[in-house]
């Protein structure tokens, strides 16, 4: 049986842990609201761009389509872009994304493809490095920014496109977590390069659209932008998911700490009462002996 002092120490330590988890939960809740608003604000741009892409890519196809749309003609080297967060305390958020990426990596390797990882954020590095020590290529550092913004997405996309143009890989998949609700986030895989033609049914009004300079030039200018937007959207979804997962995880932690405190307090009171009873018995026994 632990002594009274020990119990007291444990109770106060769990209490301070609870304070931390509670604070983190509230911070996550506030950040979640912001992240959700940001994700919502990015939607008009993404949907308009997808619409334009759909109508253009339908027109420009065949041999003269840009490389970013048509692909390199090979399907051998795959780049897995894994977007994680920089901080933990978010439950299974990071490990779910990593697991999805590793599953895909294993099945690609089983098919005899070459796989390389491109990591965004810090938290994916350790588990991926453990599973495939030789395959971790670049890591994009996001620790110096508070929230991933369009600039980061731009830098990541430009980096990826430059590698693609250099012929370093043939297909790029992006792994991130789609935000469904604060309780559920879904690890998602998405092919970003070559750009899959959006399936939006172009609301063809039959009107002849005039293009300036030309359809191909516009498409060529549009594709990198589309990739950027995809990555930006993924980063935003990821951010919202992280906060949601963090909120849920911290809520659970706070509740667990509360339960532990209750249990320890009961134990503390019992042993204090036991000590008092023993003392009383001693006094009474002493008095009776006189």
């Amino acid at each position: 049986m632990a002594s009274l002092k020990e119990l007291k120490g444990r109770i106060s330590s769990v209490k301070s842990t609870q304070k931390i988890t509670k604070a983190k939960q509230m911070v996550a809740a506030a950040k979640l609201r912001k992240a959700q608003a940001a994700a919502e604000a990015a939607r008009p741009y993404a949907s308009r761009l997808a619409g334009v892409m759909a109508s253009l890519s339908a027109k420009v196809s065949g041999d003269d389509a840009p490389k970013l749309l048509a692909g390199t003609g090979s399907n051998q080297r795959h780049l897995l872009v894994v977007a994680n967060s920089d901080k933990g305390l978010a439950g299974a958020f990071n490990s779910n994304i990593v697991r999805a990426a590793l599953t895909t990596a294993r099945s690609l390797i089983a098919q005899g493809k070459n796989v390389e990882f491109y990591l965004i954020g810090r938290k994916g590095r350790a588990p991926i490095k453990r599973a495939f020590p030789a395959l971790v290529g670049t890591q994009f550092d996001t620790t110096d920014v508070r929230e991933p913004g369009y600039e980061e997405a731009e830098r990541i996309a430009d980096d990826l496109i430059a590698r693609y143009e250099d012929g370093k890989f043939d297909v790029a998949h992006l792994f991130f977590s789609t935000f469904r609700s604060a309780l559920s986030q879904e690890p998602t895989e998405q092919q970003i390069i070559p750009v899959p033609a959006p399936e939006v049914a172009a609301d063809d009004t039959g009107a002849v659209v005039e293009y300036e300079p030309g359809e191909e030039e516009i498409l060529e200018a549009l594709l990198p932008r589309y990739v950027r937007t995809q990555i930006f959207g993924a980063l935003l979804e990821n951010n919202a998911s992280e906060q949601g997962a963090s909120m849920t995880a911290m809520d659970n932690a706070t509740r667990n700490a509360g339960e532990l405190i209750d249990k320890l307090t009961i134990q503390y009171n019992r042993s204090r009462q036991a000590a008092i009873t023993t003392e009383l018995i001693e006094i009474i026994a002493g008095a009776e002996a006189l």
Binding site: T205, V208, V209, E210, Y211, E212, P213, E217, I218, A221
Partner: peptide, 14 residues
């Protein structure tokens, strides 16, 4: 530069 008024024909430009 191009100016766009109401009823402009469908047009797309970088």
């Amino acid at each position: 530069e191009f100016g766009v008024l109401e009823g402009h024909a469908p047009f797309m430009s970088t």
